[in-house]
Simulated assay, not measured.
Amino acid sequence: MVTSEEKKLEYYKALVEKDPQYDGTFFAGIKSTGIFCHATCTAKKPKYENCEFYLTAQEALLAGYRPCKRCSPLSYPNSIPKEVEELIQAVEEHPEKRWKESDFRELGIHSATARRKFNEIYGMTFVQYARARRMGIAFKEILRGEKVIDQQVALGYESPSAFHDAFTKIMGNPPKKANIKLIYANIIATPIGRMFSLTDENYLYLLEFMDRRGLEREIERLRNKHNARILVSNTKINKELERQLALYFNMQLTQFDIPLYKDGTDFQIQVWNLLETIEIGQTVSYQELASTLGNKNKVRAIGNANGANKIAILIPCHRVIQTNGELGGYGGGVERKKYLLSLEQKLKSIRN
Results as ranks from 00 to 15, higher is better:
R134L: 12
L241M: 04
E10H: 06
T113N: 06
C68I: 00
C68N: 03
T168S: 02
E208P: 09
N309W: 09
I142A: 12
E141F: 05
E96I: 11
N295A: 12
I315Q: 00
Q268F: 06
Y261G: 11
L340K: 09
P259V: 03
I149W: 02
K7S: 05
T283V: 15
K239N: 10
M1R: 08
E49K: 08
A312F: 03
M210T: 13
G24Q: 01
K177P: 05
N324L: 06
L143F: 03
G332T: 05
E59V: 10
K239F: 13
S4T: 14
G307Y: 02
G329N: 01
P95T: 03
S75C: 02
A308E: 01
I142K: 15
K262Q: 13
Q252L: 10
P174E: 15
E326L: 09
K337S: 07
S4E: 14
C41R: 01
K45N: 07
E288G: 04
K176A: 06
T56M: 08
K140C: 01
P67W: 04
K140R: 08
I109F: 04
T190W: 12
C71V: 00
Y157E: 07
Q152W: 07
A154S: 14
N297S: 14
P46S: 11
T33R: 09
S111P: 14
G29N: 00
L341D: 14
Y122L: 15
E59H: 09
Q252S: 06
N250P: 02
